[in-house]
Simulated assay, not measured.
Amino acid sequence: MKNLWILILSITILSCNKNKKEANQSVEHSTNNKIETIPVEPDGGIGDGALSIIDHHLKNIEQAHQKDNFLKHKAVRFSIDILFGGKQHLTGDITMLTNATKIRIDKKDGSQLLYTKEKVFLSPKEATDKQSRFDMFTWTYFLGLPYKLNDPGTQWELEKMRPLRGVEHQTARLTFDKGIGDSSDDWYVIYSDPKDHLLKAAAYIVTYGSDGDISKAQEDPHAIYYKDFKTIDDIPFATKWEFYTWREDKGGITDKLGEASITNITFLDEEGSLFDIPENAKEIKQ
């Protein structure tokens, strides 16, 4: 009888240890050459207190791009030079709060775009710019994408590994809740390097101005490819952007459409009067 009780007790202990191990699955990742263990619940993170697999993936990207350090700064300013189809699209300086709630674009032609209090303004009033809202939000979104992964209204799905420049990258699809942004029908497929977790590319569609018919945008997705990373205040920034068509059935990025250069990246600790609306300005609603 004594031996029987010992056998029962041993089986019970082994069973408890197995259940405890399964309930506390974890994923290891490298940060600054140190291995950090982040608990990940089984079944996509249904359990209590642990990150889901997709949340863990997004967290890795945020850490790689030093999101916390970026948001410690009040604002960031950079110069941008964009070419599309061999033609100059935009040259100027962009200043934005790091939380993207205020934006200012000083264009080379002397005109100015401002976004504040959820409104877009163009100065001077006689200036014409049919793509004011597109320029206001597109380029700042591309710069700030690694810091906006968990914005309200974002929906994520982890997808398969996809090739990028001959290297397999982890991809994830981003969609938006209805009513988010100028067009909630946009989607993104982001590529992150499996080794350093930097965001290296993003396929996307632009549905703004489609009046609800997004079929044309769905047929012609584009992609931005981030390269030539430089570190500013310990934060990595891609200083060269390349734009391509994106075809899933042809392996991703295909024909080159344009490029952009990012220079003079600096952080500001105070916004002062940077985002004040000039007297000679008009609101752009569309």
Rank of each mutant, 00 (worst) to 15 (best):
F237D: 08
L51P: 08
F243N: 11
I224Q: 02
Q66H: 15
D186I: 01
E118Y: 03
T140D: 00
G181C: 02
S10Y: 09
F142V: 14
F84Y: 15
D269H: 06
I105E: 01
D211T: 05
I11H: 12
E283G: 01
D151V: 10
E168T: 08
K160E: 15
G179R: 05
E22S: 15
S15F: 08
I277S: 04
N19Y: 13
K18G: 08
S15Q: 04
T31A: 10
M161S: 10
L71P: 03
G49R: 05
F229C: 04
K250R: 14
F70A: 02
D211V: 06
K117S: 01
I35A: 14
A201S: 15
N150E: 14
A201K: 13
I232C: 02
D196Y: 07
E159A: 06
I82E: 04
A281S: 09
D93Y: 08
Q63M: 03
T95H: 00
R77G: 09
K59M: 15
G92R: 08
D177F: 12
G45D: 09
K59A: 11
V167M: 14
F267R: 10
A100W: 00
L90K: 11
G166V: 05
K67E: 05
V206S: 01
F78V: 02
E41T: 12
L268T: 01
H169I: 03
Y115G: 00
S183F: 02
N19M: 13
N69R: 07
L7S: 14
S210C: 03
N99L: 06
G92E: 09
N32L: 12
G179F: 06
K125C: 12
T12L: 15
D234R: 06
T263H: 13
I262F: 11
L51K: 10
F137K: 00
S111F: 02
L114W: 03
Y188T: 01
S30A: 04
W156D: 07
T175L: 07
Y208P: 01
E271Y: 02
I253K: 10
H29P: 04
S261D: 11
F275Y: 03
F142A: 14
T37H: 08
I180P: 07
Q131Y: 01
E248G: 04
R165G: 09
L198F: 05
M136T: 00
D249L: 06
R133D: 00
K21P: 06
G49Q: 03
P124R: 07
G47L: 08
Y225Q: 04
G44M: 09
D213F: 06
K21A: 15
P124K: 05
V27S: 09
N24C: 14
L113P: 00
N150Y: 06
I94F: 01
K195E: 09
D68L: 07
K20L: 13
T98E: 11
D43W: 12
T12W: 13
K18I: 14
I284K: 00
D43Y: 13
T138I: 00
E22Q: 15
F70N: 04
A50T: 09
Q286D: 11
Y225V: 07
I105S: 02
V27R: 10
A50K: 11
I265H: 02
H73E: 11
K20R: 09
N264Y: 04
K130C: 00
V76L: 11
T37R: 15
